[in-house]
Design a protein around this nucleic acid. Structure first.
Lengths: 324, 324
DNA sequence: CTGAAAGCGCTAACAC
DNA sequence: GTGTTAGCGCTTTCAG
């Protein structure tokens, strides 16, 4: 493995000069620069980034943690982040936590150990004091609302999303509305649940505890929900569902049971995933890719000491189709 | 930032001993070990992996490259890889190429520059000689069939998948069958196309060039295809579609036009994505997650000089639903 | 414009 | 069991 020392010898210059050429520094005589370049070519020089990283104290790698990579929300988020990383010539380390605090810690350590320069939290359940402690080792950007003041935030305004969904259903004449969310401990889950109950009270909607479901992620989950929901009475007239997939499962099973959508059960999802179009599901469109891109740029700007707002919100859009 | 030198001083031992403690070497007197551990605690010691990596000449990071992260096939593949990486305590660098050779090179350089120890190719279009050259810098595992002998392969037996689909359609009485694939230059695309035409000839199926589509990835693409396909005559009786999403789009538009599925047009997809269940799409199930897991383990074993087969195939399964 | 020299923080032969 | 010493490959003052 040839290194700059060998290049320096061959080109009859010092290692410093080689380094300068490598880093495009000014003040290198053209002849010397050419000699160095020539030597690098002849010796097939390849830089070693571990050495560079050690010396510079940074790696140009960002990390992102998500509960599941194979989830349409998170894979789109990662895609957005990845795009911006490519632009800034950063690499992206992706870590899957399964919402396991130990795995989250494992990931945070990558920052402590200087394997990555900054962190993006797609979703995480670790308490604030953990994040506060970790943030001493590098910048953190969260894609969820959370209470830590040490980390920058960019997130989707779930409160307005829930309100949008409820307002829409009320406009369609519904008074009894159920709720289904994913992880109730995540930032998304917390704010969706909170604002749903807030507006339910404010509008005086009818309610039964049987109309609430959490930890629901898949089509299969949706099918189960429909089975539980449709046999009981009273039944809600409409469901607000935090995931298009779960909503798809509910509709699938409801139709199988001969229940008319939306007359007997209105359903609205979240995300505007491709599946929603095919099954004519009304949904709340979330700018997921933009979320990822903004998060990456936020982190990039933080790393470069730019002045950036500490809290940012993205807005949502109602997509009305035939399920409501 | 405290380093092992400070620890050594504080604990009254040599740096070597500290290193030994850090790496759980035998032959360290318990008293010294305790002294070191105590000093590390008091000084809040955090190891620096760039230094470790430089010294050891490896990083414990795998890299994976895919055209798009936000694609159900690839996000599931990455999830499988990520799971095994967590088990082996490897990190995972994910790179999105958009099938751009320059971006692929950018990623390969990460291996040359020693940022990652090994590569997994989710899909890549770079020619063999590039891969051969890169493979000098570390192990490579490809998730597609490709001609380079330097890289290990684990892939899905697309030939058998195409045969399965065609056999099924023939059993249903169809003689005129069209084909729709994604990237025709990728390993998947190449082998699907090749084997489709092979069996078309072998079985003497009817054919029109109008029944072939490539570069099709989304529901919207499927809708376009249906518009093109359904207005022309002769029309195929069935379509083999390389993606459940595209298939979903075709069915969506066909139904909108009042065409009965499968009587007037049979459609079979690939992947068994969640969407296929909801719309009753027959499809070829691919063990994507297993593919990712196997790829990661293959790479891990290669890195550890275990003896592993150079070529591995995974098999497929027909899921019969109502679209055929 | 250029080079000497001192790091960056850790590992690993080798000798005792 | 333990310490000395020489790396790993590059960056960056500082002096000229």
């Amino acid at each position: 493995m040839t290194n700059i020392t060998e290049i320096a010898k061959k080109a009859n210059v010092s290692r410093t000069t080689v380094s300068r050429v490598l880093n495009n520094h000014p003040y290198v005589k053209p002849e010397k620069r050419d000699a160095v370049l020539k030597a690098m070519k002849e010796l097939n020089y390849v830089p070693n980034f571990n050495a560079i990283n050690l010396s510079r104290g940074k790696t140009n790698v960002f990390g992102v943690i998500v509960p599941k990579i194979n989830h349409p929300f998170f894979s789109k988020l990662i895609a957005g982040i990845g795009e911006e990383c490519n632009k800034h010539n950063y690499s992206l380390l992706v870590h899957q936590s399964n919402n396991d605090p130990e795995q989250e810690m494992e990931f945070f350590n990558r920052l402590k150990y200087k394997l990555i320069d900054g962190l993006i939290l797609g979703s995480c359940i670790s308490p604030h004091h953990v994040l506060d402690e970790i943030s001493e080792f590098g910048n953190i950007v969260s894609c969820e609302a959370s209470a830590s003041k040490q980390v920058a935030h960019i997130f989707i305004n779930h409160e307005s999303g829930i309100k949008m969904a409820i307002d829409h259903l009320r406009n369609q004449g519904h008074q009894s509305i159920g709720l289904c969310i994913g992880n109730p401990k995540s930032g998304v889950g917390i704010s969706r649940k909170k604002s749903f109950f807030h507006f339910r009270n404010e509008y005086g909607l009818k309610w039964s505890d049987n109309w609430y479901f959490e930890e629901q992620y898949t089509i299969e989950n949706g099918i189960e929900i429909a089975k539980l929901l449709l046999n009981k009475s009273p039944r809600p007239a409409a469901m607000v569902v935090g995931s298009d997939y779960v909503a798809a499962g509910i509709i699938y099973e409801a139709k199988r049971q001969g229940i008319r959508i939306p007359e007997e059960l209105a359903v609205i999802g979240f995300d505007n995933q491709p599946i929603s179009k095919v099954i004519e599901l009304s949904t709340i469109h979330q700018p997921i890719k933009e979320l990822g891109q903004t998060a990456a740029n936020l982190l990039y700007n933080l790393m470069n000491n730019k002045d950036v707002p500490n809290i940012n919100k993205l807005n949502l859009k109602l997509i009305k189709r035939k399920s409501t």
